[in-house]
């Protein structure tokens, strides 16, 4: 059975500490001032002293119906054999059409290569070696689960079977592979 890599983010456990943000920068040699993932604060909301705030890790949502792949004029953006949305930087000309199409603002033009760039779930550097993405392994709060959603025994599959998770901007029908559990934060 084909793999379907997926991530679950338990927002309750995210501390907004940005360890993932920095780990990703070095793992993927992301240029200064650019990010493949970031975790901004959402809030604070409410009124003193009943206040809430949470952090939402944002990156490529690895859509299974990805608007970026659909619009890419050169097929640089594509699905790989494991269902991931990846960018073939040899084919990319940097037209930014994918960036206009991505509802998650997950893409940017890499300052050094001039091509579109985004989270790959660390496919080349870690997944193919059996390691989890750098953000997952460095997560201080333990908020990130990762694995093959097609394997019912995987951490993500078991979690999703027993918890209510959501995808961001479901109205666009992009079918993301990154799932958010907002329990305890909203």
């Amino acid at each position: 059975m084909a793999k379907h890599y997926a991530m679950v983010i338990q927002l309750k456990k995210c501390l907004g500490c940005q360890a993932c943000t920095v780990a990703c920068k070095f793992e993927n040699k992301v240029p200064d001032g650019q990010y493949r993932t970031k975790s901004p604060a959402i809030g604070p909301s409410g009124t003193y002293p009943n206040v809430k705030v949470f952090f939402e890790k944002q990156a490529c949502q690895m859509c299974q119906d990805a608007p970026c792949v659909k619009v890419c004029p050169t097929t640089a953006s594509h699905y790989n054999k494991d269902g991931l949305v990846l960018i073939d930087s040899h084919k990319c000309v940097g037209c930014k059409y994918c960036m206009t199409a991505c509802p998650y603002d997950a893409r940017f033009i890499n300052k050094n290569t001039g091509t579109a760039d985004k989270c790959t779930f660390c496919y080349d550097t870690r997944l193919t070696k059996g390691e989890k993405p750098a953000c997952v392994t460095t997560c201080v709060g333990g908020a990130l689960l990762f694995g093959d959603a097609n394997d019912p025994q995987s951490e993500v599959a078991r979690y999703m079977a027993t918890h209510r998770t959501e995808v961001r901007k479901a109205q666009f029908g992009t079918r993301p592979s990154v799932h958010y559990d907002y329990e305890g934060v909203k």
Binding site: C17, A19, T21, V22, A23, K25, F26, T138, C139, V140
Partner: peptide, 11 residues
């Protein structure tokens, strides 16, 4: 295997 943002920034 966990380290914080500052630890990750060593390089």
């Amino acid at each position: 295997g966990v380290i914080c943002a500052r630890g990750n920034s060593g390089p």
